[in-house]
Design a binder for these strands. Structure first.
Lengths: 219, 219
DNA sequence: CTCTTTTTGTTGAAATTTCAACAGAATTTA
DNA sequence: TAAATTCTGTTGAAATTTCAACAAAAAGAG
């Protein structure tokens, strides 16, 4: 567990928690670490939503599929980031999403009820954890909000530009890499992949951007 | 303030708070009540996001507009429900949405920093409020999630049916009323109003539903 | 009750998206 | 390195959505 301390320190769930307390706390919470190979399912749709996941290495895609295979990519969590906490905190019966390892990943799983329902030795840590969860959930809300703002646009071009402008702003530069390949970007924007490729080419021809695979430059 | 107690009791922010403590707490939090006429702006896009709003009577629409007037309706809060808490809790600089009174409404506004940063007399209430906020944010996350699940569908018909099926499930009956008029439903589903009307007519002709204004019956 | 305003439904044309199929590039595997 | 697989860009046809304009219905105002 010690080898993960550096990454756990960056996890917002453990903000303001002293490092020497962290290890003991993990024991108290029953945290366990599981390794997943590329494309393996970390949490499966329909299963009880009891776990909070923390990416220790690799990355996790939160996705949803409808009855006829239309994939919707909701978010991607990288090292130090959490997933599943909204469903766990709301004590949802069945998970409406699947979480997939994008690459070989180490994932920490914590049974959320251990955080929500304070243990017998009413340690002050619980209060901090709940505060941290509240903060994280607020931020997640805002991320969802941004996704809605982007996908609410009516055309592929508008969605794409809204997304790229946001990425540029986040990167603080007109040159940046996105974390998606074409299919994933299409799934995130909720559009057709081939139409997305066509639109990117069009923007390139119009001199609005330059791009090569995951790298983009806005001109 | 007393006359609002009945509705405040139903607000998830005050879950598990004893009624006799509630009034004092509201004073401590600097809660104020403001009345808004129909279509008036309760919170304006771009302003600092410091307030949590609670609908005491009437209802509030959370909406967003892009540069060319495409409206997107994110959510509607009715009596006892909160709005703006995600932005306030995340301490967002500028509000990315506007909140509009759908009808004449009484709204309670609470400066969120009074909840987040515990006051000198470190009352146990703060802990409960933060726990309640955490729970509410988790639920809001799930609501956003449902909206994404609906609007991720590719056609007007699929979006509409996904929405109606969810409403039917929520109502526990195939006959139910929706809280939107046609334009609002179109704004929520992120589709064109006239196309939505046409689709509803088509579903009616196909014998899949019956509807009159805001009332729907799935057959 | 009448007049005005708002809401809803219809329509056809224009624009866009989706779909399916394929070819070339890039990457991975053996 | 060669072969196999995955990813990306292209294309044209079919399906859908948006847009604009209008008429009918319903709701609100005086």
């Amino acid at each position: 567990m010690e080898k993960y301390l550096n990454i756990l320190r960056t996890c917002p769930l453990f903000a303001q928690i002293r490092e020497d307390h962290l290890l003991r706390m993990l024991g108290c919470l029953g945290a366990k670490v599981v390794q997943f190979d590329k494309k393996y399912t970390i949490l499966a749709e329909g299963k009880p939503a009891k776990y909070i996941g923390i990416v220790l290495s690799g990355s996790a895609q939160i996705m949803q599929m409808d009855y006829y295979g239309n994939r919707s990519l909701l978010a991607v969590s990288g090292p130090g980031e959490m997933f599943g906490e909204a469903f766990a905190c709301a004590e949802t019966k069945a998970l409406p999403v699947s979480v997939i390892a994008e690459e070989p990943s180490d994932i920490m799983l914590i049974d959320c009820s251990h955080i929500l329902h304070t243990c017998s030795n009413n340690c002050g840590f619980h209060q901090q954890l709940i505060y941290n969860l509240m903060k994280s959930l607020a931020v997640k809300n805002i991320l969802f909000h941004q996704k809605i703002e982007i996908t609410a646009k009516r055309s592929t071009r508008e969605k794409l530009m809204a997304y790229l402008l946001l990425q540029a702003k986040k990167a603080g530069s007109d040159r940046f890499d996105i974390p998606f390949d074409r299919q994933e970007l299409a799934d995130y924007l909720e559009v057709d992949r081939s139409g997305l490729s066509a639109e990117i080419s069009k923007l390139r021809r119009e001199g609005i951007l330059r791009s090569r695979k995951k790298h983009f430059e806005l001109l």
